[in-house]
Nucleic acid binder design. Structure first.
Length: 285
DNA sequence: TGTTGACCTCT
DNA sequence: GAGGTCAAC
């Protein structure tokens, strides 16, 4: 009938770095464990001695959803081997070896990054939590309080801008609302995105209200698995600036071009290493 | 084609 | 001043 627990043997998997690196916003660290919601399921994860142990609230027959989300079968060595052989990249990898890319749900990822505009990770988490508590389906957890799924497109689209602003969304409220309504109005078809190339999918995503190149790229990378896509945000701009061009100040366009040509077929993966390394270890300005 | 300010609210 | 976008120069 399925199990409440399951152990996966892993090699080079830094769960802490991966879940806190700002690619997903639903994870909470409690002691040694991480609690979160993936789709409609609550789960608690713990890494120890090369094993990830997962604990569910209800018996699970098939754990494929979790293996997919955590990308447990991804060949990390193969990706790392394609990175440029330069000092900034080596330092970034050395500082968090085992940092991974998750594979998230398109809508949740899209919505989360729409909310990310000029916000820090802590605050993005806060907005996502408020939205889920208020508009998401309650689901079973092993804690005293129930957990909540991320709200559906339909539910968000039916909200008023004013109620969304009450979840501390500020000027992001009309953007989230607009994107949800655009999708319901079939301005784009989320189901079809996985069948498109990354540049086709980027064009589609950017048809949505409030979605520009940065958010589109984050969705391509974190939900679509387009690992060659390199989202450029202000952190990465500063990091590239400091690490690769300490003596001059390239234009945004030049940095964009550098990002697109320097990092190879797993550029998005490389970006994640640089991003996390910069955020934790570098003084940027 | 490239740059600048407005947009909410909170630390 | 914050992990962005859009519209107006």
């Amino acid at each position: 009938m399925g199990d409440l627990r399951k152990t996966f043997h892993v090699r080079d998997y830094d769960l802490d770095a991966t879940l806190s690196s700002g690619q997903a916003f639903r994870w909470q660290q409690l002691g040694q464990a991480w609690e979160g919601v993936i789709g409609g399921r609550w789960v608690r994860l713990r890494l120890s001695k090369g094993d990830i142990t997962a604990e569910a609230a209800k018996p699970v027959r098939d754990w494929a959803w979790l293996e997919h989300y955590l990308q447990l079968h991804f060949n990390l060595d193969q990706a790392l081997a394609t990175f440029p052989d330069d000092e900034p990249m080596q330092n970034a990898v050395a500082s968090f070896p085992g940092l991974r890319l998750l594979r998230q749900d398109y809508w949740e990822c899209l919505a989360s990054f729409i909310l990310s505009a000029t916000k820090q990770i802590v605050q993005i988490r806060q907005m996502v939590m408020l939205l889920s508590k208020r508009y998401g389906e309650p689901i079973a957890s092993n804690d005293d309080d129930p957990a909540f799924a991320f709200p559906t497109i339909k539910v968000i689209a039916a909200c008023g801008e004013k109620e969304l602003r009450e979840c501390k969304l500020g000027f992001r409220a009309p953007n989230l609302l607009g994107a949800a309504r655009d999708i319901l109005d079939k301005k784009i078809d989320l189901q079809r995105l996985p069948t498109l190339t990354s540049s086709e999918a980027r064009k589609e995503l950017m048809k949505l209200h409030g979605v520009g190149p940065k958010i589109a790229d984050c969705v391509l990378l974190f939900a679509g698995g387009h690992q060659e896509v390199f989202p450029v945000d202000v952190w990465i701009e500063r990091a590239l600036q400091q690490l690769y061009f300490p003596k001059r100040r390239p234009s945004a366009k030049q940095l964009r071009k550098f990002a697109d040509t320097h990092f190879g077929p797993y550029a998005g993966f490389a970006q994640q290493y640089l991003f996390h390394h910069a955020r934790v270890h570098l003084k940027l300005k």
